[in-house]
Amino acid sequence: MEHAAEHHAAPVGKTFVLARFETGEALVDACYKVREKGFQHIDTHSPYPLHGGDEALGLGRSRVPRIALSGGLTGMFGGYLMMVYMNSVNWPLNVGGRPPHAPPSFIPITFETTVLLASLSIFFGLLALMRLPQPYHAVFESEAFRSAVNDGFWLSVALPPGGDGKDASALLSQLGGREVSTVQEDMR
């Protein structure tokens, strides 16, 4: 099987066309126009969230609130039931004559486990949704793209397999994009 791979062409990485815009508004405008032309996998890259950026990319509601809610509910019921099981079922504990199942005394920890589980699920849910950590991405092949997290506003268009990106590059230049370049994922 190992030999078989040698006979095939090396795997081709994903290809992106990149272009830099002067301002956030220009990037949002360009994003709308590129999407209207039928390009599918578009992304904006900016040092801070763009005003109207979500709509320009056509993104729907975020799934984070539902993840947070499910984490919070797990923490709430899990925390309370944990205490009931430990202090009143598995080993009923009589402290100063209070009942083994003492709801008021269980509230503070229930609150804390709710917040803890909701926060952990937000954090790790976010990482999962964003597919981070991802140390390598094709866009990092462009040295100029490094301004995207500092002062540049970049648009990236992922090309379908086999596409040469000429149409996308031409469109981006026409929309006022600077430093238009094509980058390919390094598959080594």
């Binding site: 979500d54 993104l59 909701a118 950590p133």
Partner: peptide, 27 residues
């Protein structure tokens, strides 16, 4: 973590940040 300022990331990030702020307040 390989952050690249992606608009698709910011979309979820903003919501997550707001929710964490909302949870930290009663905490």
């Amino acid at each position: 973590l390989g952050w690249r300022g992606s608009g698709r990331h910011w979309h979820n990030y903003k919501v997550g940040y707001l929710l964490l702020a909302g949870l930290s307040t009663p905490l």
